[in-house]
Simulated assay, not measured.
Amino acid sequence: MEKRSCWPLILGLNIVMIMALLGYIHLKRESVNKLANEMEFVQAAVRETDLGLENYGLAVEQTQTEMDNAEKEVKELQDEVGKLTSAKAEKDKEVQACKDSAAALNNDVTVVEKEKSDVDGNFAGEKTKWSEDINRLKQQLQEHSPVCAHAKIPPKDLEKDPTLKDLCPQIQNQTTTVLPH
């Protein structure tokens, strides 16, 4: 009987072992399913990361192209600035030469203006003297000159030189008086 009494125990142990193995297999299957789900999430994350890296790579290439274009433009602008700077330097020299010339001309103008003011002052003084002389001479002309009183000029000479009448207005009177005699 002893042999028979072990059988149920062995059978029970086998059943327990089978149940344990089934439980273990079930746990491992859940673990594998979990790992498969995690692996799917990780693969999706990796795909997203790859896509992001591709986009980043494209952005890097585009940025590099833009930087290269910008460097070309900067180089061109620097060349143009260099040309304009040399042109500006030439124009600055011309402007300085014009300023120097203008300063020299201003100095010349100042000298000429001084001379003009001196000449104007001298002219005003001379004009005053000449005006005084002219007025004095006019006054003398208007006065009867004793020479004119004794001058006997024939009318023919008066017609030839009419200025004699201006010098001695009495001559005209005398000639008219002399003619009727």
Score class of each variant (00 low, 15 high):
residue 45 A to G: 05
residue 95 V to N: 04
residue 105 L to W: 02
residue 157 D to Y: 11
residue 34 K to P: 01
residue 137 L to T: 08
residue 39 M to E: 08
residue 172 Q to I: 08
residue 145 S to T: 07
residue 56 Y to S: 10
residue 173 N to F: 11
residue 65 T to K: 13
residue 138 K to F: 00
residue 108 D to T: 08
residue 102 A to D: 03
residue 6 C to M: 13
residue 73 E to F: 10
residue 177 T to D: 15
residue 60 V to H: 04
residue 158 L to F: 03
residue 98 C to P: 00
residue 158 L to K: 00
residue 57 G to A: 14
residue 118 D to R: 04
residue 78 Q to S: 13
residue 11 L to Q: 10
residue 91 K to Y: 09
residue 17 M to G: 15
residue 75 K to A: 13
residue 59 A to N: 10
residue 162 P to Q: 04
residue 51 L to I: 09
residue 99 K to W: 05
residue 59 A to C: 02
residue 45 A to V: 01
residue 87 A to R: 12
residue 100 D to K: 10
residue 174 Q to N: 09
residue 52 G to I: 10
residue 165 K to S: 10
residue 174 Q to L: 03
residue 157 D to K: 14
residue 60 V to G: 01
residue 149 A to D: 15
residue 174 Q to A: 04
residue 91 K to W: 09
residue 106 N to F: 01
residue 31 S to H: 01
residue 50 D to I: 02
residue 68 D to Y: 12
residue 175 T to S: 08
residue 47 R to S: 11
residue 163 T to D: 08
residue 21 L to C: 10
residue 79 D to K: 06
residue 64 Q to I: 05
residue 152 K to W: 00
residue 104 A to S: 15
residue 181 H to M: 11
residue 158 L to Y: 05
residue 31 S to C: 01
residue 19 M to S: 14
residue 111 V to H: 05
residue 111 V to Y: 05
residue 138 K to E: 13
residue 82 G to Y: 08
residue 19 M to Q: 04
residue 135 N to P: 00
residue 127 K to Y: 05
residue 36 A to I: 12
residue 139 Q to C: 02
residue 109 V to M: 14
residue 150 H to A: 15
residue 43 Q to A: 07
residue 61 E to G: 01
residue 5 S to G: 09
residue 27 L to D: 05
residue 42 V to C: 02
residue 5 S to E: 15
residue 115 E to S: 08
residue 21 L to W: 00
residue 152 K to S: 11
residue 121 G to D: 04
residue 159 E to L: 13
residue 38 E to W: 03
residue 9 L to S: 05
residue 106 N to G: 09
residue 91 K to M: 13
residue 61 E to T: 07
residue 153 I to W: 01
residue 16 V to G: 14
residue 60 V to M: 04
residue 128 T to N: 12
residue 22 L to D: 05
residue 172 Q to K: 05
residue 29 R to N: 11
residue 155 P to F: 01
residue 150 H to N: 15
residue 24 Y to G: 14
residue 62 Q to N: 13
residue 49 T to N: 10
residue 177 T to M: 09
residue 163 T to F: 08
residue 169 P to K: 03
residue 94 E to N: 10
residue 125 G to P: 00
residue 144 H to I: 13
residue 144 H to S: 14
